[in-house]
Computed example of a mutant assay.
Amino acid sequence: MATSVYETVLIGTCDGVIDKKKNTSYSTNKIGDRPDLLPIITLQYPICSLCQRGLSHVVQIYCPLAASPYHRTINVFACTNLQCCGKSESWIVLRSQCLDDDIKARQDDKTTPYTESAMSRTDWCDEADDWGMDDEEQEKVAESSAQMPSDSTSEGNDVSIRLQDLCIDGGDQSALEPTDVPVFKSFYISVMEESDLGGYHDMDHENKLLREYEDREGKIVREIQSCGSGKAQEEYEKATAKHGDEAFTSFIKKISLCPEQVLRYSWAGSPLFITEPPSNVNQMVSCCGHCGAPRVFEFQLMPALVSLLSSADTSSDISLEFGTVLVYTCRNSCWKSGSTIPVEEFLVVQPDPDQKLFK
């Protein structure tokens, strides 16, 4: 998979519990709760292909692409059945899109007007990121978008933003959800660029985690130290982890500046594998089932998310176990004008390599 020399990587972290009294919408980046649908989307709640149980909503990411006129939301679901944990077949990722005109049409149809907050789409794309795309990649996305049917000619066609908590008060549409599907506690997701992590906070917590890793894996790691530039440096002695997996060692090194990250976003960038992937991993990622275009890596869920996935119902006990979940989406982000059904994309679940040590 071709990537740019410099990839913009966005880091998502937990930013507090979502108050049940506050409404969220399709533009809210969040953990857990129920999915918030784009105005025209109808969702038949997904079920596990292994045990046929309803899947629980894990994360919602609002991620419109540069040079595209579409609002764009991705929702990830997983099965909480212990027998299905760690298996890609028990997860599903859905991509939904719609145009500004679709939202306006819905406003006209509603008895109670649909109102956006004072911040419009164009207000927050002037100084935003380009989601890690180089010029060539942006041109390809722009060409693909131009070829897709579109009724929108608004000034918001160049949508280029970072993940953020931009809440637009939505309507009352909700997913067609079985009443017995477990619901995870809900948290906001905030974002920063990985390049800004130097000096993010003091290194005591990170060094503690490194010491624990060192004791567990038998690998010698020197402490992270802040340098004069405000960025952190880490030095690693050559050694072999107990499980012999260099990918895991590299993974730990990469996230050490912010172990609490729950998500890494880099459209068409490089995934961070927690265990050595198969040599044919690129061939394993299937092409888009709708337009036939190759899929590109978009984001991944990180180990710190596991501890946040507990039941919203205090009387029940649910959880998920995984190392990382890699999400791949259609390079063209294809969408049929007028469609009301989400597009299923592709994901790979990698288990935590430490889990096998206890089996």
Rank of each mutant, 00 (worst) to 15 (best):
M1I: 12
A2L: 15
Y6V: 12
E7N: 08
T8L: 14
I11K: 09
T13R: 12
D15A: 04
G16S: 12
N23I: 08
T24K: 04
S25T: 10
S27L: 00
T28H: 12
I31F: 12
D36G: 02
L38D: 05
I40S: 13
L43G: 11
L43C: 10
Q44R: 12
P46M: 09
P46R: 07
I47V: 14
C48Q: 07
Q52N: 11
R53Y: 14
V58T: 13
Q60L: 08
A67D: 02
H71G: 05
T73C: 10
T73H: 08
N81A: 13
L82M: 06
C84W: 03
C84N: 01
K87I: 07
I92P: 11
R95Y: 02
R95K: 09
L99M: 05
D102A: 05
Q107R: 15
D108G: 01
D109F: 11
D109V: 06
K110E: 09
T115I: 13
E116W: 09
S117P: 03
T122Q: 14
D123T: 07
C125Y: 09
D126K: 10
E127G: 08
D135Y: 06
D135R: 08
E136P: 06
E139Y: 02
Q147D: 12
D151G: 15
G156M: 06
D158W: 14
V159F: 13
I161G: 13
R162I: 15
R162W: 15
Q164W: 06
Q164Y: 02
D165H: 09
L166A: 13
L166F: 09
D172S: 15
Q173P: 12
P178W: 05
P178V: 04
T179L: 06
D180S: 04
V183F: 10
K185H: 03
S186M: 11
I189C: 08
S190R: 05
E193T: 08
S195H: 07
D196P: 08
L197C: 10
L197P: 01
G198K: 02
H201S: 05
E206A: 14
R211I: 01
E212T: 12
D215C: 10
R216Q: 05
E217G: 00
G218A: 13
K219W: 03
V221A: 08
G228W: 03
K231F: 06
A232N: 14
Y236T: 11
H243L: 06
G244Y: 09
E246K: 03
F248Y: 03
T249P: 00
I252L: 08
L257E: 07
P259Q: 13
E260A: 13
Y265Q: 06
A268I: 09
F273E: 11
F273V: 15
I274Q: 10
P277L: 07
M284R: 12
H290D: 14
H290K: 15
G292F: 07
P294R: 11
R295A: 00
M302T: 06
P303K: 12
P303N: 12
V306C: 10
L308Y: 09
S311N: 12
A312L: 07
S315R: 13
S319D: 01
E321P: 00
G323P: 00
V325M: 02
V325I: 01
Y328P: 00
T329D: 00
C330P: 00
T340P: 08
P342S: 15
V348E: 00
D352I: 01
P353A: 02
